[in-house]
Simulated assay, not measured.
Amino acid sequence: MIILFTYLFYCLNGYCDSLPRPVYDQQSNSQTRLTSSDGIAPSPRRLGAHDAHDANMSIANSFGSKKFPQAIIIGVKKGGTRALLEFLRIHPDVRAVGSEPHFFDRFYDKGLEWYRNLMPRTLEGQITMEKTPSYFITKEAPRRVFSMSRHTKLIVVMGRVQDFLGLKRVVTDKHFYFNQTKGFPCLKKPEGSSRPRCLGKSKGRPHPQIPSEVLLRLRDFYRPFNLKLYQMTGHNFGWD
């Protein structure tokens, strides 16, 4: 028991990450070790509040393995990405990092092994996910994600994400309650907690009242870009 608590203490303070472990390409199962571009093993990282929560979940779930994410929410900023992530984490087939790793824009030099160690443990059939909206505006991010895995799905908030990920529809109204103070629905029991949870103070802000003539000008301006998006995705979102 003493050994277990000692291990938990060191892992929650980031010391477990200092032990170098080989990372393997999950698609090809090759035995190639992945390190940072300069060949130096990733350095230890002290956990923040959200990271500590995820570390707790990973330690509590000693089954499965850490994998590179099969799906990444890349944007857009203030487009509901945090709400989307929290709602997807309700699904039993989704495991996700709570905080934003910012690997492909800020910490890419730490190497793929460091990145994979941030991920929660998953079982066969579960999807590993992360969310960092600034990837959407980082020009290096697409190439870096593709170098990691060409099979990773990139999510931009604009449609029905559960269909895109091939998830069975299990998230319903029973998972939410309407918070009168916040003015929007909150989670009854989020992952790893027995208490209800609402999104932060910066979420759920009311939209400003925009004059109709401004809306018309914006629609005219964005119409050709919307048409290109419809052609690229093969889906008409009906924004006109």
Rank of each mutant, 00 (worst) to 15 (best):
G48D: 14
M129P: 05
D105I: 06
F103K: 00
P120R: 07
D93L: 07
K78V: 00
L47Q: 08
R106I: 07
T132E: 02
D109G: 06
K139L: 15
L112R: 09
P133K: 00
G75F: 01
E86P: 00
S99T: 08
Y115D: 05
F103L: 05
A83L: 06
F68T: 08
K77W: 02
K110D: 11
S36E: 10
E140S: 15
F68Y: 14
P133D: 00
T132D: 03
A52D: 02
K66F: 02
D51I: 00
R143M: 15
V97I: 15
S58Y: 03
A83H: 01
I74E: 02
R106S: 12
A96L: 06
T138I: 06
P69A: 05
D54H: 08
P92F: 03
I72V: 12
F104Y: 14
A55Y: 05
D109I: 10
F87A: 08
I90H: 11
L112F: 15
I59Q: 09
S99W: 11
R46F: 13
P42W: 07
I90A: 05
R45I: 08
G39L: 09
A141V: 10
G48Q: 10
Y135G: 02
P44E: 09
F87H: 04
A83R: 01
D51M: 12
D105R: 03
T81I: 02
S65H: 09
I127Q: 08
S37E: 15
P69Y: 03
G111H: 06
S134H: 13
K67D: 13
P92R: 04
Q70K: 13
D105E: 13
K139D: 15
G39P: 04
P92S: 05
I137H: 09
L88Q: 01
E113S: 15
V94R: 03
D38S: 15
A49Q: 12
K66S: 08
S36M: 10
A83W: 08
I59L: 15
G80N: 01
N56V: 06
L88R: 01
E100A: 05
K77R: 13
K78Y: 00
D54I: 09
T81M: 00
F68L: 11
L88K: 02
N56A: 11
D38I: 09
Q70T: 12
G125N: 10
A60W: 12
